[in-house]
Computed example of a mutant assay.
Amino acid sequence: MQRMLKVIIVLGIGMLMGACAAQANPAPTAVPTPTLPAAVYTPQSSVDYCVSCHTDKNALIQTAKPEEKAPSESEGVG
């Protein structure tokens, strides 16, 4: 019983001394980050071509898909 108590005391002292010892790997120092140049704001034109394209009758006719006849429900294998 006394031997076990001595082992526990020695281990406890060893743990305390290990915690107080100097660290082998010191904390990394802060590395300054390079500063980026300020972004230059260049306004872009806000022209909206959607309305003119979607209301052009000739362009709509030229780009439209031909209408396909949907198969009726009574046709086909049943």
Rank of each mutant, 00 (worst) to 15 (best):
M1A: 15
R3H: 12
L5R: 07
L5M: 09
K6W: 10
K6I: 07
V7Y: 14
I8N: 08
I8C: 04
I9P: 03
V10F: 11
M17N: 03
M17K: 02
C20Y: 04
C20M: 13
Q23Y: 05
A24S: 02
A24F: 02
P28S: 02
T29V: 14
V31Q: 14
P32Q: 12
P34T: 01
P34H: 01
T35A: 15
T35Q: 09
Q44M: 09
S45G: 08
S46C: 07
V47K: 12
V47Q: 14
D48R: 02
D48Y: 11
D48N: 15
Y49A: 08
Y49K: 08
C50E: 11
C50P: 02
V51Q: 14
V51T: 14
C53F: 14
H54D: 09
T55D: 09
T55Q: 08
D56F: 14
K57Q: 12
N58C: 05
A59G: 06
L60S: 03
I61P: 00
A64H: 00
A64R: 00
E67F: 02
E67M: 07
E68S: 05
E68L: 07
E68W: 05
E68G: 04
K69Y: 04
P71M: 00
P71H: 01
E73C: 03
S74I: 13
S74W: 12
S74L: 05
G78R: 10
